[in-house]
Design a protein around this nucleic acid. Structure first.
Lengths: 213, 213
DNA sequence: ACTAATATGTGAAGCTTTTCACAAGTAAAA
DNA sequence: TTTTACTTGTGAAAAGCTTCACATATTAGT
């Protein structure tokens, strides 16, 4: 009931998925949805959906289901996307520049307000309307722009220094694209996006299947 | 001991991380490594490292630790990256094209051998040495190129059709970048890469921290 | 040969997450 | 009003995962 009990990471992930389903349904004009429908579309079970949601409150009506837009609103509040977040991208290499170009973050309430790099040939360039800043000015840029989250897309060798500066300037959240485990002080949250790791999990599974034959 | 007991997804993920650490150590010239060192670098516990590894066999020497390159080799075999995989990219939109440009897959044994799209303005174009093929020829391309894995980077609306064709042509692994849960037949493995979901998990945590104050 | 120091491999305990099963609430039809 | 059909919310059971603790094995020094 209260949000104070710890919510598991997997539960948060699933809730994020439910939100995406609800938004499609909202567009589609659906008014109510059952836990079973949500589970069908998210690849989990109806009981799981209800458990996930019930840890934040009672959003549904017995016998009826959940109100689509009502539930979507609640979830947005829960995961904090009822407002936009100010994000800085650090590192405009291959991945970094792809992320800026993509634009998929802004659509979902993550607003890239600054781009930084150490490479003199990149500093001053424009990337989708933003000028690449010198990493030397990192702390100033963060303060001026009110940056709350960092998307970290620098080479592995540079990670440790940048993480220190992120911590020092008081930022509490990092989305890490570098293929290494970040060591951060207490109070800073890191989420990793590691495409190669996912591919390796894939090939592991396929390998296992082959061995069983 | 035997690989027949089910290995958890989180264990496979960690093993993938250990491999990355081992490769850094290999380059560094280190010869042996203890479970504690591995846990330090991967953000887990020594017991966890040993449990993870022991489900595949006994690779270490009591009192000594693990041989770095020996263990790396074993892990490569376990996750199936002791050889290269033939991958096709479906969808050359913003994300898709960024992935090709990136090149980080090839480095790790995932060889992009074909690129496909439905957009006539893209078909025939060259992307890092490969000509974009017409999605109409999907089945032929898959067979000619011996494609084993698909990187799926198409819009949500197109997902369902493409997944059907992937299943029909006999491919068993999909790395999904579309922000939706794929419904696939038994025997096909899907791994999702969902950057926005990670960001939402981040903002959830930051939100919670703020509420506790 | 013996002792000290080190570090693996693993059964068992402890903890977390998922699934089950059902009481309780809602709406529409008879 | 009563019945019927449905669906949530939630303790309790089951399953799964992580941590503990220690027997076991190896090397180096005395």
């Amino acid at each position: 009931m209260s949000i104070s009990n710890k919510i598991s990471d997997s539960s948060v992930r699933r809730i994020s998925i439910y939100l995406r389903i609800l938004e499609r349904m909202e567009k589609n004009g659906d008014e109510t949805v059952s836990s079973e429908e949500l589970s069908d579309h998210s690849g989990t079970t109806a009981a799981q959906v209800r458990k996930d949601l019930s840890s934040f409150g009672s959003f549904g009506k017995r016998g009826l289901g959940y109100g689509v837009s009502e539930l979507a609103l609640c979830i947005r509040k829960i995961i904090g996307v009822d407002r936009s977040w100010r994000v800085a991208l650090v590192g405009v290499g291959r991945i970094g520049s792809a992320l800026v170009d993509w634009g998929g973050f802004l659509d979902r309430g993550y607003d890239i307000v600054a781009i930084l790099d150490v490479d003199p040939s990149k500093i001053g360039q424009k990337w989708s309307g933003l000028t690449v800043c010198d990493m030397d000015d990192f702390e100033d840029v963060v303060r001026e722009q009110g940056v709350e989250l960092i998307i970290l897309a620098v080479p592995v060798e540079a990670v440790s220094d940048v993480v220190d500066r992120i911590a020092d300037v008081g930022i509490r959240g990092i989305l890490n694209f570098a293929p290494t485990t970040l060591r951060v002080p207490e109070g800073i949250t890191v989420k990793d996006v590691n495409m190669v790791m996912e591919l390796e999990a894939l090939s592991f599974t396929l390998n296992q299947q082959k061995l069983k034959e």
